[in-house]
Computed example of a mutant assay.
Amino acid sequence: MPSRSTHAARAPTTDEPARASAPVALARRTTVERILDTAEELFARHGYFGTSIRDIMQACGLEFSLARYHFGNKDALFREAIGRRAGAISQQVIASLDALLDSLGDAPPSTAAIVTALSAPAFEHLKSGERGWHNYLRLLTQNSCLRERPDLTAPFYDQYSPAAARYRQAFALALPEADPDTVRLVQRFVESVFHLVLNELYARAAKSNAQVKASALSPAEVERMRTYLVRFAVGGIDSLARPTPDNPDS
């Protein structure tokens, strides 16, 4: 990407110390971050197809040409936006699972504990009111609309794959009678429910704010929806992965 390219450097003179380039580098980073912050918010609110580069640049008050210079095109900008927090959230959900497993010793985790650990980092971000994470998590709920464009979401899934693998292993421990295909289905089900709950939170916030703001999500409301997520997901897992008296082969 152009924003990551390294330009040929000339040796500084005695009248021009090497550190003189630092403000320029800082300005470049600030410009890129402003574009990414705005892109993250608009893509989250209007989706990939409902947002143009011109919309983004007008919203952040920068020249259209700067987007072309730093990112090239809309696809590249979207990939950068959806990938830039992926490594962080992946590490956070792995750490949440590690803390759970460490607390249990050799005992297997429950499905409720796994779902709670998986969702904990995201809900903590929402309760903090930090706008960047609020927008990013909303952006992730749009992934299902881009199944025909896996190239756009690859930067997220590539970085999140270690966390996804760890949680599949945890669900397999909690459901020792389930085959690998069922475990994968359980994980997809939980992720889908998670996105539905997030979308419900954003919809509730939108009703009270013409422009959705992080502050519109009260910690109490976020925590209440997290409880619903765990209860609903665990009920679904029990139905998917455990045989019932009426259908012992299910």
Rank of each mutant, 00 (worst) to 15 (best):
C145P: 00
Y69G: 00
P23V: 12
A120D: 06
R184C: 04
G50F: 14
S5C: 08
A154H: 11
P109N: 10
F194S: 06
L229R: 07
A154P: 00
T51R: 03
L217T: 04
A22V: 14
K74S: 07
W133S: 10
S119G: 11
P248Q: 10
A165Y: 00
S119A: 15
P108K: 15
R79T: 05
G132H: 06
E221K: 05
F189W: 02
L126G: 00
N247K: 08
G235Y: 00
L217V: 12
D181W: 05
D249M: 09
R28Y: 01
L42M: 14
R147G: 06
A117W: 02
R28C: 09
M225F: 04
L139F: 06
D106K: 08
L146W: 05
A203R: 14
C60P: 01
H46T: 12
L126S: 00
H195A: 14
M1P: 03
A39H: 03
P2K: 11
P248F: 12
D179P: 01
G83E: 13
N143L: 01
R54C: 04
R188A: 15
G72E: 05
F189G: 01
A9C: 03
D75V: 12
G47I: 15
P176I: 08
L175H: 06
I94R: 15
S208I: 11
Q211G: 00
A11I: 10
S5L: 15
T141Y: 02
I94N: 01
F171I: 12
Q92E: 09
Y202V: 03
L137K: 04
A25S: 11
A22D: 06
F171W: 04
G47H: 09
H46D: 14
P23S: 10
M57N: 10
E40G: 02
V32N: 01
T182V: 11
A122L: 10
R84M: 05
E16W: 06
V197D: 01
Y157I: 02
L101M: 14
V234T: 14
